[in-house]
């Protein structure tokens, strides 16, 4: 069953045509990687799935994006309800100026959960799910800024998981991390597949190969190729893809 479906998506920043005629289906509980050179539109595309581009003035979208067969750009869609079910992790760890506990509890609180004991239990669950619990269980009250970069990023993943979305969007989640932290985050992404549909934007092709089931290659606002990761990396159909993954690309 298709979790996400993009139909004839075109996207504009002012007059700049940033995404061109993109069609894509993403199945439930898979990891999909978006790759491509900088400025190819992969992040822009990712940010359409939780309507994050709404925040940028003078942008518009043609086409449809369906999640669970619902057009999320239809009139009357509550954006915050949508974002509750589509979590997002950003390029740089961006914890709030709050304690570790409150960072994870934030999503619950802003969506109206008042039951403290439930929140406590949920924070523990998600921190365990993000493989962070053992490292932070004694300092939940401390500021999130006291954590290392890798820990902060896993905290941000936990924060996104806490409201139990069905989709997780990750915008280059490991690009600001050292190799050891990156390995931990990648391990976590593989785990997440059990419960979530994960879309990850990455610059790092090994990373795409390691964590994803399917890969989409973008170039200059177009989706050039989309398919099984194994096939894309071993036997790409398009020459542009071939050149990019073999590193012979500007």
């Amino acid at each position: 069953m298709n979790k996400i479906e993009a139909i004839d998506v075109n996207f504009f920043y002012g007059k700049f045509h940033a995404l061109k005629d993109i069609n894509m289906q993403i199945e439930e509980r898979t990891v999909v990687a978006f790759i491509g050179p900088s400025g190819c539109g992969k992040s822009t595309f990712l940010r359409l799935f939780n309507r994050m581009n709404d925040l940028i003035p003078d942008t518009h979208l043609h086409g449809q994006i369906l999640i669970d067969n619902q057009d999320i750009y239809q009139k009357g869609v509550a954006v915050d309800e949508l974002r509750k079910s589509v979590g997002m992790v950003f390029q740089r760890p961006n914890p709030f100026p709050k304690s570790i506990f409150e960072n994870v509890a934030y999503g619950l609180r802003v969506n109206g959960v008042k039951d403290e004991s439930f929140i406590r239990q949920r924070v523990e669950e998600t921190l365990k799910g993000a493989a962070l619990w053992d490292e932070v269980k004694d300092k939940l009250k401390q500021s999130a800024f006291a954590l290392s970069g890798g820990q902060q990023q896993r905290l941000c993943i936990a924060r996104a998981m806490a409201i139990s979305p069905s989709i997780l969007l990750m915008d280059e989640p490991a690009s600001a991390l050292d190799p050891i932290s990156t390995a931990k985050v990648e391990e976590l992404i593989r785990q997440l597949k059990k419960d979530y549909t994960v879309i990850i934007v990455t610059h790092n092709m090994q990373q795409a190969a390691r964590v994803s089931d399917k890969t989409a290659y973008f170039y200059l606002g177009e989706m050039i190729e989309y398919g099984e990761t194994k096939r894309i990396f071993t036997n790409p159909e398009k020459e542009s893809t071939q050149r990019y993954i073999t590193g012979r690309f500007g």
């Binding site: 939780n50 994050m52 925040l55 915050d80 309800e81 974002r83 509750k84 979590g87 997002m88 950003f90 390029q91 740089r92 961006n94 914890p95 709030f96 100026p97 934030y106 999503g107 609180r109 802003v110 969506n111 941000c156 924060r159 996104a160 409201i163």
Partner: peptide
């Protein structure tokens, strides 16, 4: 990035202002 993180969690604009 901090605003976006808050909005991405389903917070409203005011909640983002108020809490972040």
């Amino acid at each position: 990035s901090m605003r976006e993180a808050s909005l991405a969690l389903g917070a409203s604009h005011w909640q983002t202002i108020n809490r972040v």
